[in-house]
Structure formats: structure tokens, C-alpha cells
């Protein structure tokens, strides 16, 4: 029962069914691509797994434990990380602040220790700062540590955002179009990072992406959604040759490819 198993998941908004009877399992140490035309229900699916949207029916299990119906922060606490398509900005946050916010779950001091800056709080904060700086260094953005996030180039911002969700040491990572808006060099760097996460840390990754070249070279398997249903699930080479997939895409060209 290891992995992130989605079974017969359905999401309805009023009369509209955005996700219908979807099922697949994402395994640790593998990258699963989730593709499909705009409006196919990819982001809704990710939102469901993260607990932002409640599913109408079906189950989402992590190593056998039900996640559906839990609140966002409890799902995060079980090891589901999430990266949004557009990094959410917090006014006044520097890159370092952003990464320290990612350490939230590793800080265990109480409110009193915080109010009076007791040694326990200072120590843990120092450790968090250290980790955050190391993480910035690892993505080659050490120089940006004290820069305001809003002033960073978009590509850097997305890298910091990814690094932030890794601070919580998730076991599965949900990525929504991580390379949209990045240049080729940045895309290569990001692809390397994802590969390393998979191979070295054994992370399971669910990747929503419109860039088919990236999907082809990065993913171990691909699930294709169309109008809320799974229409194909195979290795990338097979999926990208699939007729039904072609048909789903031909009607509507991928917007950001």
C-alpha cells in the first residue's frame, strides 16, 4: 500500500463535474506526469490532494492512510508538498524569510518562548536560518537571501518557491506547471533538481505540465486527463503516441508549450 493512491475521485462544483472517477497511484522515487488540455481538471485534482478543495467522492490514501477530508495543514504534515503555478508573494518577505516560513513544522517552541525570545526559540530559529541559507546556496541563489521576493526575477522566485516546499521534507511533491515562464537554462536547472529529488531523496513527484518535451524526458509515467477523466496512463513514449491523447490535444493546442 505504499505510495499516493487515488481511487475513484470525483469533484463536482454545483452542476459541473471537474474530476470524474479518477484513479492512479504515484509511487515514491518516481515522477508522474499529469497532462491534459486546459480545463481537464489537473489543477483541481492537485487541489484535492492538497486539501484545498474537498472531493465529492472517492479516496486519496498516502501509504494506506486516508487524506480526503483532512484540512490543508494536516495533509501537509503527512508529507504532501505543494508548489503553485505562480509563487504566492507575502508582502515584505525576503527569499530567506520565504524559506524560513517553509521550516514552520520543524519549529517546536511555544508562544511564551517566542514572546520572550527564550534560548529554545533562538536556537531553533538559528537552525532554521542556517538550513534556509544552505537551501538557497544549493539552488545557487545565496546572493538573493536578503532581497525582497517581489523584486526577484520570476525564475528565481519559482526556484525559491520550490525550495520552500522542500524545507518541510515532503515525501510527495505536487508541482503545477513549474517551468511556465522560465527560460531554457532555468528549465534545465529545474529538471536537474527534480531528477535529483527523485533519485537521491526518493521523492514521489506529481507534475502537471504543458511542456511535452520536458514531460517526455523527465517523467517515468504519464496520466492524461480529458474533461475530468483519465484517458490514458502509460510510459511517456506510449502516451505521447496515443491517438486519444492526440485527439484531446488537437481540439485545443496546449497554451504554454
Amino acid at each position: 500500500m505504499s505510495g499516493l493512491a487515488i481511487t475513484r475521485l470525483t469533484v463536482r462544483f454545483g452542476g459541473l463535474t471537474a474530476v470524474r472517477d479518477v484513479g492512479f497511484t504515484a509511487a515514491p522515487g518516481r515522477i508522474l506526469g499529469l497532462i491534459g488540455p486546459n480545463g481537464a481538471g489537473k489543477s483541481t485534482l492537485l487541489n484535492c490532494i492538497s486539501g484545498i478543495t474537498r472531493p465529492s467522492a472517492g479516496s486519496i490514501r498516502l501509504d494506506g492512510t486516508e487524506l480526503a477530508g483532512l484540512s490543508m495543514h494536516r495533509i501537509a504534515a503527512r508529507g504532501i508538498g505543494r508548489v503553485f503555478q505562480h509563487p504566492e508573494l507575502v508582502a515584505g518577505f525576503t527569499a530567506l524569510d520565504t524559506l524560513r516560513a517553509g521550516c514552520h513544522r520543524d519549529l517546536h517552541y511555544g508562544l511564551l518562548a517566542e514572546l520572550f525570545a527564550l534560548p529554545a526559540a533562538r536556537r531553533q530559529e538559528a537552525a532554521a536560518r542556517h538550513r534556509a541559507l544552505a537551501a538557497l546556496d544549493a539552488i545557487g541563489l545565496a546572493a538573493d537571501a536578503d532581497r525582497d521576493m517581489a523584486l526577484l526575477p520570476y525564475g528565481h522566485r519559482k526556484l525559491v518557491d520550490l525550495a520552500r516546499s522542500l524545507m518541510a521534507a515532503p515525501r510527495f511533491l505536487l508541482l503545477d506547471e513549474p517551468v511556465a515562464g522560465l527560460n531554457d537554462a532555468e528549465i534545465d536547472r529545474l529538471a536537474d533538481m527534480l531528477r535529483e529529488l527523485r533519485d537521491v531523496r526518493g521523492l514521489g513527484i506529481v507534475l502537471v505540465e504543458h511542456n511535452m518535451a520536458l514531460v517526455a524526458r523527465l517523467c517515468d509515467e504519464v496520466v492524461v486527463l480529458d474533461a475530468g477523466r483519465v484517458i490514458a496512463h502509460d510510459v511517456p513514449q506510449a502516451v505521447l503516441r496515443d491517438r486519444a491523447v492526440m485527439a484531446a490535444y488537437l481540439g485545443e493546442a496546449p497554451a504554454d508549450a
Partner: peptide
């Protein structure tokens, strides 16, 4: 930091494990 995250993006805060 948790309060600032909540102010500017509840969802991002929640997915980072902030109650």
C-alpha cells in the same frame, strides 16, 4: 511568519502545514 502568510495567502500557508 505564519500570520503574514495567512494574511497574504491562506492556501500557501495551509499547504506549508500552517494551521
Amino acid at each position: 511568519r505564519a500570520m503574514l502568510m495567512l494574511r497574504d495567502s491562506e492556501i500557501a500557508a495551509g499547504t506549508l502545514g500552517i494551521g
